[in-house]
Write a protein that binds this DNA or RNA. Sequence first.
DNA 1: AAGGTGACTAACA
DNA 2: ATGTTAGCCACCT
Length: 106
Amino acid sequence: MTFQQRVIEITQQIPYGKVTTYGTVAALAGSPRAAIIVGQVLRYQSQLHQLPWQRVINKDGYITINNPHFPAEMQVALLEAEGITVEKKQLFKVDLKKFGWFPSSG
DNA sequence: AAGGTGACTAACA
DNA sequence: ATGTTAGCCACCT
């Protein structure tokens, strides 16, 4: 079981209408300091595994995606389609207190 | 197999 | 509040 496989499984467990952070996924996958790797995994595997990659954002609630094929605007659209409020006037910020999914801390 | 990369995060300033 | 720096570590080639 590789880190990558764990990331994929955990991402698939994020409930519809909720979001979590790269750091949280990394921690659940067993490497709390490998948050940046979570992003790499999603970048390479999101299409192949049809992952809900849009539900993973950074710890401050901001969308920091950097993938030409999946721009931030697309991620915002996908999140809003799930009923998640995105503050477009504040760098695409999501309220983690309201929409965050943190199984290990709650 | 070794090295470059970066969808992160915590410190600093 | 913004901008830079360092540490991180598994991804890919």
